[in-house]
Amino acid sequence: MNRYPLQHNALRCSTALAGGLSDWTVLGLAVTIYAGRLAIRAWYIRGHRYGPIEWVLRAATYGTLRPTEIGRTQPG
């Protein structure tokens, strides 16, 4: 769920820049942003159970703050 808002923002930025850049430059920028996001996501998911937006929604639903890191237990 977390990647959709970021994809939307990346698309908006690339279309805003498209007026002054060539098609190949915009394509290269979009691929670079996408690859960077995939690398960051892979790194984040290795150490956390949920993404940040999912964590907020779960906290609101359950009414408690749950640990996001893998290996940590819930206090109490």
Rank of each mutant, 00 (worst) to 15 (best):
H48I: 01
Y62P: 03
S22D: 08
I45N: 03
M1A: 14
M1F: 15
Q74M: 13
T32E: 04
W43Q: 06
W55R: 15
Y4R: 14
Y44S: 06
E69F: 11
R12Y: 00
A30M: 10
Y62L: 06
C13S: 04
T73W: 10
A42W: 13
E54L: 15
R41A: 10
G63H: 05
Q7P: 04
V56S: 10
R12G: 00
Q74V: 15
D23I: 11
R3T: 15
R72E: 13
P5M: 05
P67I: 04
R3N: 13
Y50G: 00
H8C: 02
I45K: 09
R37E: 02
I40M: 06
R72N: 13
N9S: 07
A35F: 09
V56G: 06
R37K: 08
T61I: 03
A30E: 07
G19Q: 09
M1S: 13
A39P: 05
T25F: 01
N9P: 02
T32Q: 06
Q7K: 05
E69G: 11
V26P: 02
R49I: 10
T64E: 07
I40R: 06
E54I: 13
I40W: 09
T15K: 03
I40A: 09
A10E: 00
A59E: 07
E69I: 07
D23W: 05
G36I: 01
G19R: 05
T64S: 08
S14E: 00
R49L: 08
L21C: 09
Y62G: 01
A35D: 07
Y4Q: 11
V31D: 04
G51C: 10
N2Q: 12
L38G: 09
A60F: 13
T15I: 04
G28C: 12
S22V: 01
A16V: 01
I40L: 10
P67E: 02
R58F: 06
A39H: 13
I53N: 11
P67G: 04
L11E: 07
Y34P: 00
D23T: 11
T25E: 01
C13P: 00
N9T: 05
L11Q: 10
P75T: 14
T73M: 13
T61E: 06
S22I: 02
T68K: 06
A10Y: 00
G76I: 11
W24E: 12
S22L: 08
G28K: 12
L27Q: 11
R12Q: 09
T73D: 13
S22P: 04
V31R: 07
